[in-house]
């Protein structure tokens, strides 16, 4: 068999191997990430991450926000890209035409998939939750987009991103089981922080995890970034960072 013929046969295998190596490399890079949360609430969509401020939770557009984990430079690239797309879409059509499903479908997912499969270029080491606040709670949309561009739309109003997918799902299920419509923002924060701590504790098991009393209000050694895409906001920009006063009863 000639050299050229062998190259043709081997190339798909090399590509698959390169993609598998890439997946392993990205997962390894993401391993130390701390979780982020998005929860659909009667007040709007609640976003939470641990960081020193504006490093994990961001405003995207009038009723859109994101919370991400990964390399800060890659998070910034993704953030800028989606902000740019949303504003061009809102300007050329109307703000109401900026929808999360379209942003994910024609912008976010293709960009991440392309970056993941371009094996000769550096990958984007980032996974993110995107949130859209609807007029009513049932119209909220959450999307989890993986580093390879795969979108998932949590149906129970709770989104979590964490490098360990199995524990991520367990945390989302635990939160969905313990959140009720009557919970105030302080309880939502407390439950998210309890889930955050459990995710970071390798020995914690969500099946047996009880709701801590009192609920935590902060994290040791970490600042908090908490935002609400406020359904009751009077202006077009519904996103706002929450401050201590927002959690008082």
């Amino acid at each position: 068999m000639g050299e050229g013929r062998r190259g043709v046969i081997e190339e798909p295998y090399r590509w698959l191997e390169a993609v598998a190596n890439r997946r392993e490399y990205i997962q390894d890079q993401l391993r130390g990430a701390t979780p982020v949360f998005a929860v659909s609430r009667p007040e709007g969509v609640f976003l939470l991450g641990a960081g020193p401020g504006r490093t994990k939770v961001f405003e995207i557009y009038n009723r859109h926000g994101m919370a991400a984990v990964g390399n800060p430079v890659d998070m910034e690239k993704l953030r800028q890209s989606v902000i740019e797309t949303a504003h061009m879409e809102g300007f050329n059509r109307s703000p109401g035409d900026v929808t999360l499903r379209r942003l994910v479908g024609f912008s976010i997912s293709p960009a991440l998939k392309n970056a993941f499969e371009q094996i000769v270029a550096a990958p984007l080491i980032v996974e993110a939750l995107f949130a859209e606040c609807g007029a009513a709670r049932g119209e909220d949309v959450l999307a989890r987009v993986g580093y390879d561009g795969t979108p998932e739309y949590p149906a129970d109003g709770v989104g979590v991103v964490f490098p360990d997918r199995e524990r991520e799902r367990a945390a989302a299920d635990w939160l969905a089981a313990h959140l009720t419509d009557g919970d105030g923002l302080a309880r939502v924060r407390g439950l998210c922080l309890a889930a955050w701590s459990a995710l970071m504790d390798r020995d914690a098991v969500f099946d047996t995890l009880s709701v801590p009393e009192p609920l935590p209000v902060s994290l040791p050694d970490h600042g908090l970034e908490i935002a609400l895409i406020d359904r009751a906001s009077s202006g077009p920009a519904q996103y706002r960072m929450l401050v201590d006063a927002d959690f008082s009863p």
């Binding site: 800028q80 504003h87 809102g90």
Partner: peptide, 10 residues
């Protein structure tokens, strides 16, 4: 409107 908000968010 878009210019000011785009700058603030980005």
């Amino acid at each position: 409107q878009t210019t000011f908000e785009y700058y603030r968010r980005s």
